[in-house]
């Protein structure tokens, strides 16, 4: 879908906005991972700052609450020496599109350089990217059920740090794929980076039939799905799924799709267990696994800062290089 390329990439194929993984070439994803690797070292130093984005203003524009995600973006911006403005905007205040545009114009007037956007509606980040001034970049920090590309890239970063390459890997994503922006972005990232196989596991109410068109293989049984897996990614189950008649109870869900040590034994011995957080212990994952030796859940959080630094540096860099060219 070429339109995404043209919205996200500049004419010389630099990353102008980071809205979704879909439509980005493998080279761009690898560039993000390589850049994140260099920033990863910064986090381990005594002085955790680099002056790369000094004088830049980054606005965290959160229309949906998420302290965790906002905090890692904030930390990433600060480590790059940017000025950060955090705005939590209740969606009721911007129920109409026009006032959302008004908000953007006001922030642009304050010379913001980058918007980090989280919104409950799919496509919100695209909408904002299409309507910002030419010098402003947009990073999607999660829009509805559509995409959460920085989360997917920090997962890819974590996987690459452990395995070094993607081609031989079998990755299993377990849970509510239907509503998950994380799963969509992960599937696109994994197929773009060329893993051996992506399996998606869950009840058929939460695994859309069309998931095959994304290059993922649906699987009804977790035991079957875990067979020979290198990576298992557990998705968070939202409590409200019971009301929508998607699943009968947390108890039955855990019995069928909850990750336990016993089920994990079917995967490869060096399997990585991942979760985008926050975890529902005893619903999608047993504590013994979440806190166990195969779990890299906390590592994902630290990696998130390096990946977000990389995406900020690349998107803001696309302007200066363009201007200099």
């Amino acid at each position: 879908m070429g339109y995404r390329d043209s919205l996200q990439l500049t004419a010389d194929r630099r990353l102008r906005h980071f809205l979704s993984i879909e439509g980005l070439p493998r080279a761009t994803l690898v560039e993000i991972l390589d850049t994140a690797e260099s920033f990863f070292q910064v986090g381990t130093r005594e002085v955790k700052k680099v002056p790369l984005l000094r004088g830049k203003t980054i606005v965290n524009l959160f229309f949906e609450n998420s302290t965790r995600t906002r905090t890692t973006f904030e930390l990433a911006a600060k480590r790059l020496s940017a000025d950060v403005l955090n705005l939590n905007i209740s969606t009721s205040a911007t129920s109409k599109g026009e006032s959302l545009l008004d908000t953007l114009r006001n922030l642009e007037a304050m010379h913001a350089d980058l918007f980090v956007v989280r919104h409950s509606q799919s496509g919100a980040a695209h909408y904002i990217a299409r309507n910002v001034a030419p010098h402003v970049s947009v990073i999607n920090a999660g829009d509805g059920s559509h995409a959460h590309p920085t989360q997917a890239m920090l997962d890819m970063f974590t996987i690459r740090r452990h395995f070094g390459e993607f081609a031989p890997l079998t990755v299993v994503i377990v849970g509510d794929v239907l509503h998950s922006r994380v799963a969509r972005s992960q599937i696109h990232a994994l197929t773009t980076l060329g893993v051996n196989a992506v399996r998606v596991v869950g009840p058929r109410t939460l695994i859309p039939r069309e998931v095959r068109t994304l290059g993922a293989h649906p699987c009804d049984s977790l035991e079957e799905g875990l067979e020979g897996a290198d990576v298992v990614i557990m998705l968070r189950l939202q409590r409200e799924r019971m009301q929508g008649a998607f699943i009968p109870s947390e108890r039955e869900y855990f019995r069928l799709y909850g990750l336990t040590e016993a089920k994990l034994a079917r995967a490869r011995p060096d399997v990585l267990v991942m979760h985008p957080g926050p975890i529902n212990r005893g619903v999608e994952i047993a504590s013994e696994v979440a806190d166990g030796p195969r779990s890299v859940i906390l590592e994902q959080v630290s990696n998130g800062i390096a990946v977000r630094m990389a995406v900020m540096a690349l998107t803001l860099g696309s302007h200066s290089r363009e201007a200099g060219a």
Binding site: K96, G97, E98, H119, Q121, S122, G123, Y127
Partner: peptide, 11 residues
């Protein structure tokens, strides 16, 4: 004009 502004589902 307003009716078509905003994220898709809100239009």
């Amino acid at each position: 004009r307003d009716a078509k502004l905003g994220p898709f589902a809100e239009t």
